[in-house]
Nucleic acid binder design. Structure first.
Lengths: 213, 213
DNA sequence: CTCAAAACTGAGTGAGGATGAGTTTTCGCA
DNA sequence: TGCGAAAACTCATCCTCACTCAGTTTTGAG
C-alpha cells in the first residue's frame, strides 16, 4: 500500500495488455472447445507468447481459467444486473436465454464452483465476490418488489436472494447434466415461488397450473 | 443379454471383491485427505494391488471417484431417504447435520457435479440417477404433506422437489466455498418456502422472523 | 482336463503443468 | 540522459500422473 518503503514499483505499462491478451486466448479456447481443452502451452501459442510468460502472469492454470471467466463476465454478464432493481421477470428470462446459448461459459462456471471448494483455490475470491454482488442485487430487486406489492412483505430479502442464487447454480448444474427441461422456465418459476409473488392473490391463482406447476 | 451367442463369460467371482476393495481404498483416501489427493498409484497401493489392475477394473481415475461416491452413498446416505415419505423437517435436519460432518464427501459430490457437464463424463449416469431418485423421494414427501395439510395443495410436487434439490446442491456449493451460514437452517428454510408450508396460517406467521427470515 | 475369457502385472509413454537460472526490457530518479 | 533495480520474458528441463501395451497367470464352464 506504500510507494516508498517497499522496493516494489508495481506492474509496467505493457503488463495489463499482456494479461488481457492471455485471458482473451483462454476465453476464446473455452468458447470454441470448452474449458477442458485449455492448456498452458496452447494458450501461450494463441496469445503469441511463451508458456513461461503466461505462467508468469497467471501463476497457475486455474488462474488462467478464472481470468477467462472474469473477462467473460466483464464483457457481457453484469450489465443487466448491477443496475436495475426494477428488473422484471422478463429481464431475467432474457438474461438467462442469453447465457444459455453460451453453454461453455456455464460449464466453466459450474466446474470452477465445483473445484473452488478446495482450500486455497484461486477461484474462491472471484466466486465469493460474484455471489456477494449477485445476492446484493437480487436483495434489492426483492425489496423493490416488496414495495411494489409483487413480493411478500414478510420476507428477508437477503435470505431469499441467497437462496435464489443457490437454486440458480443448482439448476444450472442439473440442466448441464441433462438438458431435458427449460432452464429459463424453472428459474423464473423459482423466483416466483421464493418471493411468494402470489401472497395476495389467493388460492385460485396458486391452483393455476401455469403458476403452480 | 444372452449367455450363448457372445463369447463373454462375465466377471469371475473374485472380481466384485476386488472392485470393492479398490473403491474402499479411494473412499478412505477421500475421507482422510480429500478427493484431490486421490491418485491411481496411491489407490492401488492402498488396495494391495497394482496400478494397472485398478485401471483394469475402473478404466479411468474419474471412474474411481464415482465408485467412491457410490460406495459412500450405499453405506450411509440413502437410508432415511428411500423409505419414509412422512419425513419431517427434523429428519431432514438430522440428515444434513450428518453429512455436514463429512465435508470431504460433500466436496467430492460437488466437484463431480461440476465436472460431469463434460460430454461423456463417467459421473453423469450416477448423478442423474441419484437426482432422479431424490426428486422422486421428495415429490412423495411433498404429496404426503399436501394430504396432511402442511404443504400447499396447489403445488406440482415434482417441480417443487426438483427445485428443492437444485437449491440443495447450490447451497452446498456456496457453503463449501464460504461456510459463513448454517447449512441446515437454510435448507430447512428452503423446504418451507418451497412447499408453502404456511399457506393456511395467514400473514401473521409469515411475518414471524423465525419463519420468514 | 481343456481352453478361452478374465484377471493381473511390470515396464513404459506422453501429456502437460510447473520451475529455475538466467537475459532483456522498462522506467523512476538523480 | 543515462544508471540501476524491478519487472517482463525466455529456454531448457523437470516431474508428477494418468493411462497403455504386450505379455503371463488364474479362473471356471463344458
Amino acid at each position: 500500500m506504500s510507494t516508498t518503503s517497499t522496493g516494489s514499483r508495481g506492474p509496467y505499462a505493457r503488463s495489463t495488455e499482456r494479461r488481457r491478451s492471455i485471458a482473451r486466448a483462454v476465453l476464446d479456447t473455452v468458447l470454441e472447445e470448452g474449458h477442458e481443452r485449455v492448456t498452458t502451452a496452447g494458450t501461450a501459442r494463441r496469445a503469441g507468447t511463451s508458456e513461461a510468460t503466461a505462467l508468469y502472469h497467471y501463476p497457475t492454470k486455474e488462474h488462467l481459467l478464472v481470468a477467462a471467466l472474469e473477462l467473460s463476465d466483464e464483457e457481457t454478464a453484469l450489465r443487466p444486473f448491477t443496475s436495475d432493481p426494477a428488473m422484471g421477470l422478463d429481464d431475467l428470462r432474457a438474461f438467462v436465454d442469453t447465457t444459455a446459448e453460451r453453454t461453455h461459459i456455464m460449464r466453466l462456471h459450474t466446474a470452477l464452483l465445483g473445484r473452488a471448494t478446495s482450500p486455497d483455490h484461486p477461484a474462491q475470491e472471484f466466486l465469493s465476490r460474484h455471489n456477494r454482488e449477485a445476492v446484493a442485487h437480487f436483495a434489492r430487486v426483492v425489496r423493490h418488489r416488496q414495495r411494489a406489492g409483487t413480493a411478500h412483505p414478510g420476507l428477508d430479502a437477503v435470505g431469499v436472494a441467497r437462496q435464489f442464487l443457490a437454486t440458480w447454480d443448482g439448476l444450472q448444474a442439473q440442466w448441464l447434466l441433462d438438458p431435458s427441461f427449460d432452464f429459463g422456465d424453472h428459474l423464473v418459476q423459482a423466483f416466483r415461488r421464493l418471493t411468494g409473488q402470489n401472497w395476495m392473490e389467493g388460492r385460485a391463482v396458486l391452483l393455476d397450473p401455469s403458476v403452480g406447476m
